[in-house]
Simulated scan of single mutants.
Amino acid sequence: MFDFSMKMQRGKYSFEAYRVVLADPQFQQTFGYSVVLALLTIVLGVLIVVPTAYIVRLRFPVVRPLVEFITLMPLVIPPIVIVFGYIRIYNTSSILPFTGSWLGTNVLVLFGYAMLALPYMYRSVDTGMRTIDIASLTEAAQSLGAGWGRILATVILPNVFVSVLSGAFLTFAIVIGEYVFAALLNLNTFGPYMVWMGGNRAYEPSALAVVAFLITWACMGLMQLVTRFSKSSLAKR
């Protein structure tokens, strides 16, 4: 695919296809839009997952298998089922017509993306919490007068920050390439743009696919680097 993307100019190898793609205003708009959605999804996922994993491990360890089962559901239920559920429940004739406005549709997409990334984010955070003594840290913070919000923000989150970053990189990679939600809810994101490009151009789609692969590989590489750096820092301590 990379070899084919370099053959846009006949008789020689060049990066012309990449230049055309990267200079395309629609690419810049859709990619920037997807990046913003990905960052907001990461924030939303952290706000949902970190307190949930913390409370389950600290107060309700009995329900942990149930929570793990619930977090696996996005891997079983196809995204298209969720989208059609959105359209049916939140259409313009509904009491809550979210799909009838740009802001409402974006809110629904954010929650949908957070749900798609839930299995990866939850397991990353839960694995990080296994490595620390949550009960002792909580008791120590409470003895110093810290409330629940401060404990989560200044004690628990810094200790599982590497795990949160791992989940964040996976979430970013998922959102950047997601197609079903954006296409059926009529959002101009990077996923539908790649599909459109694939149906209308020859060499540019290959270049675009290579760019998408590089983004995903970069996320995976950063995740590995962060994890390795964290392990080396702990070893030095």
Rank of each mutant, 00 (worst) to 15 (best):
T189H: 06
L214F: 08
Q26Y: 00
P51F: 01
L72Q: 03
S101P: 06
M223A: 04
F213H: 07
S166Y: 07
Y203R: 09
A135N: 14
M194A: 13
A141W: 09
A209S: 11
V107I: 15
V109D: 15
M8T: 00
V36K: 10
K12V: 10
A135Q: 15
D3I: 09
K12D: 05
R19I: 08
R123A: 14
V162Q: 15
A140Q: 14
F213R: 05
A38E: 04
F181C: 03
F84N: 05
Q142M: 11
L152M: 08
G147C: 12
A17L: 02
I176T: 08
S34H: 03
I70A: 11
R59Y: 14
V162W: 08
R237N: 08
Q9A: 10
T41G: 03
V50F: 11
L110S: 12
F190W: 03
I55T: 11
V36F: 04
W148S: 13
F172M: 12
A140G: 13
I70Q: 05
T171P: 00
G199W: 00
F31W: 00
V210Y: 07
F60W: 13
T131K: 14
T71S: 10
I151R: 11
I87T: 10
E16K: 09
V211A: 11
S14W: 00
G147F: 13
A182L: 06
V164G: 05
V180Q: 07
R237E: 06
V107D: 09
E68I: 10
S93L: 11
V62G: 09
Y122E: 15
L44M: 02
Y203T: 05
V43E: 01
F84I: 05
V67L: 09
A38Q: 08
E139N: 14
Q9V: 12
N91E: 08
P79E: 04
N186M: 12
F181T: 03
V210M: 08
G149W: 12
S166A: 14
S230W: 05
R130M: 14
Q142Y: 12
E139R: 09
V164H: 11
L108Y: 04
M197V: 01
A168I: 07
V195G: 09
T52A: 09
F111I: 14
A168V: 10
V56N: 11
P192F: 01
V21N: 02
